[in-house]
Structures are given as structure tokens and as C-alpha cells.
């Protein structure tokens, strides 16, 4: 069965690119515009992986990760932070919140797939 990935980004461009890349590799992709919407999607849908932007209105990515980790159902869901900042502090914040890994955008599609398959084999 196809693995399902939730991509959370306020930029449609980014969601499209992630979605296109992953769908091409046989993943099923669901999208959300921000952390709040992501939580509501996850209420209804089970996913195997969450890829989230950091900077988003309503609820940022770091908060989303924290919220998810606080839920028993998502304690062990892999979460990748997708953001432009490669800076250690951002990564550290994500890590502290409980993210599994990070991807720097702009990403090359093959790189994204490589990382995704790493945490979601």
C-alpha cells in the first residue's frame, strides 16, 4: 500500500513541488496550508510521514511538531522540517520539538525522495 505523506506549507508552490515529487515516486500526498489545518487533516487521516514548513501563519511548523509529539497517536510518526533555514538554531528548535529530520529548500527532487525514503522506507 502506498505510503501517505502530509505536506504542510503555506506556499502552494512548495506544496505542489513536494506533492509532485512524492506522487511521482508512488506516495500518496495530502496537503495542508498551516499547522492548524495540518492538525485537522491528521484528525481524519492517518499518515506515514509529515513534511512541514517552519514559517507559517496560524501555527508554525515547530509548534505543529510539538503538538503532534504531544499526541499519543503521533508520537512515532516521522516528521521532516522543510525550510529555507539551514541554520543550526532552526534545526535545533525543530529537533527540540521532536522532529525527525529536516530538508532544506530549494530541494532537488531526488534529494527529497532520498530523505523521505530514509525515514519512511
Amino acid at each position: 500500500m502506498a505510503k501517505r505523506v502530509l505536506t504542510v506549507d503555506d506556499s502552494k508552490t512548495m506544496r505542489d513541488m513536494v506533492s509532485f515529487t512524492l506522487k511521482g515516486a508512488g506516495f500518496e500526498v495530502v496537503e495542508a496550508e498551516d499547522g492548524v489545518k495540518a492538525l485537522s487533516v491528521l484528525e481524519r487521516t492517518n499518515v506515514d510521514l509529515v513534511i512541514t514548513d517552519i514559517n507559517m501563519p496560524n501555527m508554525d511548523g515547530v509548534t505543529l511538531v510539538k503538538q503532534l509529539r504531544a499526541k499519543p497517536s503521533h508520537k512515532s510518526t516521522p516528521i521532516l522540517i522543510l525550510t529555507t533555514e539551514g541554520g543550526e538554531d532552526k534545526k535545533a528548535a525543530g529537533r527540540a520539538a521532536g522532529a525527525t529530520g529536516w530538508i532544506v529548500k530549494p530541494f532537488a527532487p531526488d534529494k527529497l525522495l532520498q530523505v523521505v525514503t530514509k525515514v519512511c522506507p
Binding site: 508554525d60 515547530v62 509548534t63 529555507t84 533555514e85 539551514g86 532552526k90 535545533a92 528548535a93 527540540a96
Partner: peptide
């Protein structure tokens, strides 16, 4: 490697 965003905490 831009460190242009502070840690949210």
C-alpha cells in the same frame, strides 16, 4: 547556511 531565524523558544 543562514542563521537568520532565532530559535522560537
Amino acid at each position: 547556511k543562514a542563521l537568520n531565524e532565532p530559535a522560537p523558544d
